[in-house]
Amino acid sequence: MSCEPILRVRDLVKRFGGFRALDGVDLDLNPGEVVGLVGPNGSGKTTLINVVSGIYRADAGSIRLGEREIGKLPPHRVAALGLNRTFQVPKPFRSLTVRQNLEVAWRHRRRPGPGVREALEFVDLASLAEREAGTLNTAQQKLLDLGRALVAAPQVLLVDELGAGLGPSELELVADRLRRVAEAGTALLVVEHLMGFLGRLTRRVVVLNAGAQIFAGDLAAAAADRQVVEVFLGEGH
């Protein structure tokens, strides 16, 4: 893939009080590419996703989506420009039905993409369309979260631990769907603890520790990298 990166993050810094949760992170994502983002607890993975998606404001650095600088935009503008995300703990609109959950996103979409019915079928929730989202189990809520993000037709999708807490068949479904999303040209950044799951999606990983990138490259090479191993063993993994 020789094209320009669709997402380009440079020198990203996020502080909470005196604590630097992100300490100068660089990251490139190409269209259709899947990159795994790994690191011990507290290394800044979710913070990175929160900052890139506009939920938190960065203290320094730049985030470019295509040609646009999005670092200072509120999340709904980021979503409109084609960057979306899922949440580690799924956050559906509990009092709305499954269908209405996607309708909210569909009515605010700014880019041509799948319809509500299409998205429901894609994430395997068509049979539950009229159920109240609060009554779904965790796996179903995660799929709904994914569906909500896909309706916005993202060019970049940040996936925060979608695999955690899913059973083997659900993992298989999610991995397949994410592969298909990437094949259609969307760039994916996948935060994951489950290395097996990640290995089914990509070979390319970025390892964060203490808010900074300590490794970028092949998954197998990461497992052999001394610094990476130390960081994970130090955590007791």
């Binding site: 998606s53 506009g54 939920i55 509120p74 999340p75 709904h76 979503a79 409109a80 979306n84 995300r85 949440f87 956050k91 559906p92 609109f93 509990r94 009092s95 709305l96 209405q100 959950n101 309708e103 909210v104 996103a105 009515r107 605010h108 979409r109 700014r110 979260d145 909500r148 993000a149 309706v151 916005a152």
Partner: peptide, 21 residues
């Protein structure tokens, strides 16, 4: 419907493209 979505989860609503503020 949008207001109810915001009430249920403002962050998800924002990522669904809603101008929450």
């Amino acid at each position: 419907m949008v207001l109810q979505a915001i009430r249920d989860d403002p962050q998800s609503a924002a990522m669904a493209g809603v101008n929450v503020v």
